[in-house]
Design a protein around this nucleic acid. Structure first.
Lengths: 181, 181
DNA sequence: TTAATTATGGACTCATCGGTCCTGAATCAA
DNA sequence: TTGATTCAGGACCGATGAGTCCATAATTAA
């Protein structure tokens, strides 16, 4: 997954893959079936673990901080730091894949849609909580807010690819979160 | 450029290119030098014409409507319509390229950065005008607002790749513009 | 110890990639 | 009409892509 993440689908070769996994070519094909099958598997894995962990984190931090809004802010802070730090130019795995393959690989596109949808749902839940708690504007449609945050996160990651300067990214994150006011 | 736009850099072959241009292979190499040279040229061309036209449009519509904010809103509306319409899944040329090649092709990355920077500057100018006119919040840093809009536009295009449903995109655009309040 | 399973390395196929080169046809200026 | 230039077409190149196959080595179970 990390190889696909760093180099993109088309640019990763079988050789990259087996080298990263320390596997022989035969074992690779026995185990994963092929490059595309592995790719699909990494998308599934990403949704099942990374996105799921993000969802859980958002929920548990909402509880710990007593504020869903603070948890969302924290999540954006972490993304900003990761994007500004070394290796931050990798962007978002799902976002990268969405851009690169979603129009040419339907099976991958479905996974990407599901993963992004799950992210959106995580924000949605947090926003509902925040609206109950009173620090997120109750007048706004929570679904629209969730979509906005998800979109902002993707935009942020694209911007980080172009210029990973932390101050710029902070500006963007701050304004992205202002929709919650 | 349209071939690169639709298929991405890695996935476009020489054959795709010469077919789209109706050129022979020899003429192609005589004229453009090679695949990568052409790619760089398309990025330059995009900045010089498409981005420049966007900048001009934003300025002239600001004047025509007597409101920079209305011109910005109009620009987002157009992006939403284009992204939701047929062929909208192509995304943003610069955004796609940023995701795909900005970490592996420095020459391309420089062009992409310049193009995105020019877009940001276009927004910046419009925001200054709008703040003068009074329909854009004067308290906000115009540079930060411009970055936010640029980022939002990229996020919007990524979201459109995943799900080009117009209503969703409108939600996102509306909230992206709310930073101007 | 032996039999069965699993993993490995490397040779191999076939397609396609970007790119070069050369020949012959078309175009065009004088 | 002629001579120079431009263009098309296709043969060709080396490299590399994904994927197959098989013989052998390592592991495991009985």
């Amino acid at each position: 997954m990390h190889v696909f993440w760093k180099k993109g689908y088309e640019s990763t070769t079988l050789c990259d893959l087996i080298e990263a996994m320390g596997l022989s070519k035969s074992s690779f094909y026995d185990t994963f079936g092929g490059k595309n099958e592995l790719f699909i598997a990494t998308l599934d894995w990403y949704s099942d673990t990374v996105v799921a962990s993000f969802t859980g984190q958002l929920r548990s931090r909402s509880a710990a901080l007593g504020s869903a809004r603070a948890a969302i802010t924290e999540a954006f802070d972490m993304v900003v730091e990761a994007a500004a730090g070394p290796g931050g130019r990798r962007g978002c795995f799902l976002g990268n894949c969405a851009v690169e393959v979603s129009s040419s690989d339907p099976a991958a596109a479905a996974r990407i849609r599901a993963g992004i949808g799950a992210t959106e749902n995580a924000f949605h839940d947090a926003i509902l909580t925040g609206q109950d708690q009173g620090d997120i504007a109750a007048g706004s449609d929570p679904r629209a807010l969730a979509r906005s945050l998800t979109s902002s996160l993707n935009g942020l990651r694209v911007m980080a690819k172009v210029n990973p300067e932390e101050a710029r990214l902070r500006d963007i994150a701050r304004l992205a979160l202002s929709v919650l006011d």
